[in-house]
């Protein structure tokens, strides 16, 4: 299963695709994708019978500046091509968790997608997985990430008039 899936996902030419040690990390396959590939990947996983577990974000504020200072690259992260004089743009990450209930032991797949913090936009997968609707709405609540094509991004867990995104690292209450 995992080999076939790797082949199928590799055909989309993702940024990276790594098999991970389940005992150490808690998942089997770690895929870094570009925003344009996310929907196609969700479609492949849907065909293979995967269930959506969660969608969430991570704010990497300050990381780009730190990487620019240090020559070595932190674990699990793409090397940033340095352009002299211009600081690299800060990033956010959207993390999708999928699992397959039909196989034992369970197969878990993580898809990560980096987006620029200044223009946090990527397409929605709620057309493929209706369950992503709430998860993406929640991610929009907490991070302000805009899922283009999403039917309704109004606050779900936050108050209906909320104009803040509490999980941003520069959020001050």
């Amino acid at each position: 299963m995992i080999t076939r899936l790797k082949e199928k996902l590799s055909a989309l030419n993702p940024i990276s695709i790594t098999e991970t040690d389940h005992a150490a990390k808690g998942y089997h396959l770690d895929v870094a994708a570009s925003p344009a590939q996310v929907v196609a990947m969700a479609e492949i996983l849907d065909q293979e019978g995967f269930a959506i577990e969660a969608v969430t974000g991570v704010d990497w504020l300050g990381e780009a500046a730190a990487v620019a200072k240090k020559p070595e690259v932190a674990e699990g992260e793409e090397p940033v091509v340095e352009t002299p004089g211009e600081p690299p743009e800060e990033q956010m990450e959207v993390v999708y968790d999928f699992s397959h209930s039909g196989i034992r032991p369970l197969l878990r797949i993580v898809i990560r997608c980096r987006i620029n913090r200044g223009t946090p936009e990527l397409p929605t997968i709620s057309g493929v997985y209706p369950g992503a609707n709430w998860h993406e709405r929640e991610t929009h609540d907490f991070f302000g990430i805009i899922f283009t094509g999403h039917p309704d991004l109004s606050p779900l867990l936050l108050p209906e008039d909320a104009d803040f995104h509490p999980l941003l690292k520069d959020f001050k209450a």
Binding site: G49, F50, A51, I52, E53, A54, S101, Y129, P130, G131
Partner: peptide
Amino acid sequence: MCRKYGATGPVL
């Protein structure tokens, strides 16, 4: 439907 929404536990 459970799969598409990620429903688990006794529902699934």
